[in-house]
Amino acid sequence: MSTDKEDLVVDDDFPITEEDVEPRIEPAKTNLSKRRTIDNLLEERRLQRQLADFDYDL
C-alpha cells in the first residue's frame, strides 16, 4: 500500500442511458385498481374450475 496522496482523475462525463433513469411511479389508486382486476379474474377462474369439477350426479 502506498501512503502517498495522489490526485485521482474522475471522468464524470458519461452518458445517461434509459436504464439509469428512475422508473415512473404509478399512483397507488391505479395499482390498487389493477390488483382488484387481477383478483377478480383469478376468483372467476377458480369458480369456473369448481363448476367444471362439480359432480352433478348426486
Rank of each mutant, 00 (worst) to 15 (best):
Q50F: 03
A52M: 03
K29W: 08
D12Y: 10
F54W: 10
L42W: 04
R49P: 01
E6T: 08
K34G: 01
M1Q: 05
D39P: 00
E43R: 15
D55F: 00
N31K: 15
T30F: 07
E22R: 15
T3F: 12
A52I: 01
L47W: 06
D11G: 00
I25F: 07
D53N: 15
Q48S: 10
M1W: 06
L42P: 01
R49G: 02
F54V: 02
L51K: 13
D39V: 03
I16E: 04
L58K: 14
D4F: 05
D7Y: 06
R49Q: 13
F14R: 14
E43Q: 13
A52K: 10
I38H: 09
R46A: 11
P27S: 14
T30S: 07
L42I: 08
P27F: 04
D13C: 04
E22Q: 11
P27D: 11
I38L: 15
T37D: 11
T17W: 01
D55I: 02
I25T: 12
T3N: 14
P23G: 00
E44F: 07
K34F: 02
E18W: 06
A52E: 08
E18I: 03
T30H: 05
D53E: 15
E6C: 02
V10P: 01
D53A: 14
F14Y: 12
K29A: 12
V21N: 01
T3A: 09
E22G: 01
Q48E: 12
D13F: 08
A28F: 11
D7S: 05
I38E: 14
D13Y: 06
M1V: 05
F14G: 03
R46H: 06
R46P: 00
R35S: 12
Q50N: 04
E6A: 07
D55Q: 03
D13I: 05
S33G: 00
D12V: 07
D4E: 11
R36L: 12
E43W: 09
D11F: 03
D4C: 03
S2Y: 03
L8P: 01
E43P: 02
S33V: 07
R24Y: 12
D7F: 09
K29L: 09
T37K: 15
R45D: 10
N31P: 00
I16Y: 02
I25P: 02
L42A: 09
A28K: 11
D53K: 13
Q48K: 15
A52G: 00
N40T: 08
V9D: 05
S2K: 07
P23W: 00
A28L: 11
R35I: 05
I25Q: 13
L42N: 13
